[in-house]
Amino acid sequence: MSFFSGLDFFITLIIAIIPAIVIGLNGKSLRYYRGFLTCIFIYLIYRNSLMELAFLTGYSAMSLGLVKLYLLSRIKMGRNKFFYASAVIITLCPLILSKLESFVGHGFFGSGSTIFGFLGLSYIFFRVIQTIIEIYDGIINEIKWYEFLEFLLFFPTLSSGPIDRSRRFSQDYSKIYTGKEYSELLSNGIVKIMWGLLYKLPLSGTAMYIMNTYMINKYDPIHIIGYAYSYGLYMFFDFAGYSLMAVGTGYILGIKVPDNFNKPFISIDIKDFWDRWHITLSHWFRDFIFSRFLFNSLSKKRFKSKLTAASAGLMINMALMGIWHGLELHYIAYGVYHGILLVIAELYQKKSRFYKLHKRDKVYKIVSWFITLNLVMFGFLIFSGQGRAAAIGLIEYLR
């Protein structure tokens, strides 16, 4: 069984949420039933891989112990940078080892298996690091073990997000909705699930079929462009569909999981795109990598200007995002590519008089949208791992 995939998962999900609907419509707390369902679904998903289940359990327990210990040290010793850095590094180590293991040997045991990795590691990592950073900032002053574990393991968002924030999750965790409030939440959740199914099944499947049947391994310009577009549409419908179903399921269980996509292909510039695409991931990197780098650089006068500091921050931010996807060259190139685009956009929008004069003009917005869309689709070609083959094939074709 896999999350939001296959008839067995959806039949189980439908059966499982019926009691939740009854509980919610009667104005009762969903907290205990939601926790029970998370345990059940984790068992069903991981039962065929006891090693993954063991590492998921171990990493979650370690994370709970670590944040509790770090919170205690923060209260007793203040903003000690050694303890802060140690907590971040300990949390980061399994993720680094998993990425290295996957890159170097596709698993030390072969067949793509990994010792350190497990389904959901990357997304749990984001939640743990966010909690540690906000403890360091003094924003979080209490950790309830049961609430923290459900925040890490909440099953709709465990394997691929969206990436929630602990304080936002906490607002919903103990909330008891009235029947009327829950009825609205339920209807919104069902609508999101239905849209997710539409995205995930016919639309994603059609884009994949076109890509694999008509576009792949053909290196004339038309087929390369067709591959980039069909792959980009496949990525969007597949991931946005998953995200919508995760968000909708969260709603039905009383958690208002944040949306992850907002019409990204209507973006009028690359900055607008990253405010619409994989929103919870891009905003996580913005808040915890870019903004902190920029503030630290300005306070230490590391660069001559704020614009230079912002440009360096954008490059670091996007390169790290690429590395997070994997250590393969095409993932790193994808991150660097988008970093360069964001730097160019930042410099152009801050320095260009033409932009300031025309940015609200309708024709300008249409041209900017068209350029942005094609830059984004070229980025997906890089991300797909087919960029090098397409470049070599195109050179051969043009000869």
Score class of each variant (00 low, 15 high):
residue 177 Y to G: 02
residue 183 S to Q: 06
residue 249 T to V: 10
residue 256 K to T: 15
residue 202 P to E: 04
residue 169 F to N: 10
residue 178 T to A: 08
residue 166 S to G: 13
residue 266 I to G: 06
residue 222 I to F: 10
residue 224 I to P: 10
residue 176 I to S: 08
residue 234 Y to P: 00
residue 211 M to V: 08
residue 190 I to G: 05
residue 262 N to L: 15
residue 245 M to D: 02
residue 291 S to P: 14
residue 259 D to M: 10
residue 229 Y to Q: 07
residue 189 G to A: 08
residue 167 R to E: 15
residue 201 L to A: 12
residue 280 T to G: 06
residue 208 M to G: 12
residue 203 L to S: 11
residue 238 D to K: 08
residue 244 L to R: 05
residue 216 I to S: 00
residue 220 D to A: 13
residue 188 N to M: 12
residue 232 G to A: 00
residue 171 Q to R: 15
residue 307 L to F: 10
residue 244 L to P: 01
residue 217 N to H: 11
residue 276 R to T: 15
residue 264 P to M: 07
residue 184 E to F: 00
residue 177 Y to M: 10
residue 277 W to C: 08
residue 289 I to V: 15
residue 264 P to Q: 01
residue 256 K to A: 15
residue 235 M to R: 03
residue 205 G to L: 02
residue 183 S to E: 07
residue 176 I to L: 06
residue 306 K to D: 12
residue 186 L to T: 04
residue 277 W to R: 03
residue 284 W to N: 07
residue 174 S to W: 02
residue 288 F to P: 09
residue 286 R to Q: 11
residue 287 D to H: 09
residue 252 I to T: 10
residue 269 D to A: 02
residue 232 G to H: 04
residue 266 I to D: 04
residue 304 K to S: 14
residue 252 I to F: 04
residue 306 K to P: 05
residue 302 R to G: 14
residue 214 Y to H: 09
residue 289 I to M: 09
residue 232 G to W: 00
residue 216 I to T: 09
residue 199 Y to Q: 08
residue 228 A to Q: 03
residue 291 S to D: 11
residue 242 Y to C: 03
residue 303 F to Q: 06
residue 227 Y to W: 00
residue 252 I to P: 01
residue 268 I to R: 08
residue 278 H to T: 11
residue 169 F to G: 07
residue 239 F to K: 02
residue 243 S to H: 00
residue 243 S to I: 06
residue 248 G to W: 06
residue 264 P to T: 15
